[in-house]
Deep mutational scan, measured.
Amino acid sequence: MEVRTIKVFTTVDNINLHTQVVDMSMTYGQQFGPTYLDGADVTKIKPHNSHEGKTFYVLPNDDTLRVEAFEYYHTTDPSFLGRYMSALNHTKKWKYPQVNGLTSIKWADNNCYLATALLTLQQIELKFNPPALQDAYYRARAGEAANFCALILAYCNKTVGELGDVRETMSYLFQHANLDSCKRVLNVVCKTCGQQQTTLKGVEAVMYMGTLSYEQFKKGVQIPCTCGKQATKYLVQQESPFVMMSAPPAQYELKHGTFTCASEYTGNYQCGHYKHITSKETLYCIDGALLTKSSEYKGPITDVFYKENSYTTTIK
């Protein structure tokens, strides 16, 4: 009895394709271990004539594949690729409408935090270190965002349907971005203890939790000093293409032309909904596939993004 075979390709990165001759009487799992086709788990399936010449994702289970996976995804987590594939199996079914010149995501599976993050990423200057993220990001900007969303979920250790947080998501993504040249110098002034300067680099240099107003941050924000008295913390120097200011959701007025974009969060910790506000020729609110415009805006804002380049204080 002759062994019926077909020729397929296996890959971990969709760049390096490895030619395989597979036995049609055995499952993919018996031949390769966990195997995925377009995100779908085909591990328990036997090869079919229609699979001839198709590319299958496999887990990096030998040295060659491990090197290829690390170079593309910059992670050695053995569960990463499987999590990416199972997320992709959902995100490829989502709709990605162009809204006001940006790629958004039609609401499904509690994905409003991903839509808000995706919209924000198209408006701030950011370059990702893992080629996987950078490639998928370019495709997302062009309207094909399924891979990018699935990668975000995998890097953030999230599953489809789980509630997510924009600030946490951005923080994970910033860790995989090139923020080497970003720098922030802060000064804390206390009447009792004097003053202390701190220099922050990388992710810490672009994120701040405690106030939404970048102007206020430049002037000074009140913080408790270690001595128990009130101290003032203010920005001395900022070198970065953008800054992200966050605070627990509270009524906040966004003035046209003073910011790049913002995240609105309605609801409580267990259950809520994100919308995205962007400042173009007027203010726009993007909620999944829905767009509304207004000249002014007041609502429960939790993150505001500002364009920056270089700032030095005039406070002496």
Rank of each mutant, 00 (worst) to 15 (best):
V3Q: 12
V3P: 12
F9D: 14
T11L: 06
T11Q: 05
D13E: 06
I15M: 11
I15K: 09
D23M: 13
D23P: 09
M24T: 14
S25C: 14
T27Q: 15
Y28V: 05
Y28Q: 05
Y28F: 08
G33K: 05
T35S: 08
Y36W: 14
G39W: 10
T43Y: 10
K46H: 08
K46T: 13
H48V: 12
N49L: 14
T55P: 08
F56P: 04
P60Q: 08
N61H: 14
D63Q: 11
L65T: 14
R66S: 11
E68S: 09
E68C: 09
F70M: 15
Y72Q: 10
H74F: 06
T75Y: 06
T76F: 13
D77H: 06
D77S: 13
D77W: 03
S79Y: 11
L81S: 05
S86A: 11
A87M: 06
A87V: 06
A87I: 07
L88F: 08
L88E: 03
T91Y: 03
V99G: 05
L102I: 07
L102G: 04
T103L: 06
S104L: 06
I105A: 05
K106L: 14
N110A: 02
N111K: 03
L114H: 02
A115C: 13
T116K: 02
A117H: 03
L118W: 05
L119W: 01
L121K: 03
Q122L: 05
E125Q: 12
K127D: 14
F128D: 03
N129P: 03
N129E: 15
P130V: 10
P131A: 05
P131N: 04
Q134I: 09
Y138D: 13
Y138W: 12
R139H: 09
A145G: 13
A145W: 06
A146S: 12
N147P: 11
C149H: 02
L151R: 02
L151E: 01
I152S: 05
T159N: 15
L163H: 07
L163A: 12
D165K: 04
V166G: 02
E168W: 07
T169L: 10
M170K: 02
S171N: 15
L173V: 15
F174H: 00
Q175R: 15
H176R: 12
H176C: 08
A177R: 02
L179M: 07
S181N: 09
S181D: 14
K183D: 04
R184I: 02
R184W: 02
V185G: 02
L186S: 10
C190Q: 04
C193Q: 02
Q195R: 12
T198H: 12
L200S: 12
V203H: 10
E204A: 13
A205T: 04
A205W: 01
Y208N: 07
Y208K: 03
M209C: 10
M209R: 09
G210I: 00
L212F: 03
Y214R: 01
E215Q: 08
C225G: 02
C225D: 00
Q230L: 11
A231C: 14
A231K: 07
K233D: 00
Y234V: 11
Y234T: 10
E239T: 12
S240P: 00
S240C: 01
V243A: 01
M244K: 03
M245G: 00
S246T: 02
A247P: 01
A247V: 05
P249T: 01
Y252A: 06
Y252T: 15
H256S: 08
G257L: 04
T258Y: 09
T258N: 11
F259M: 00
T260Q: 08
S263C: 10
E264N: 04
Y265V: 04
T266E: 15
G267M: 04
N268L: 09
N268E: 11
Y269S: 13
Q270Y: 12
G272L: 00
H273M: 01
Y274S: 01
K275N: 02
I277C: 01
K280N: 15
K280R: 15
E281G: 06
T282R: 08
Y284P: 01
G288W: 01
K293N: 12
E296M: 06
E296Y: 10
E296I: 12
D303A: 00
V304A: 00
V304C: 05
F305A: 00
Y306C: 01
E308L: 14
S310H: 08
Y311L: 08
Y311T: 07
T312G: 09
T312D: 15
I315C: 15
I315Q: 06
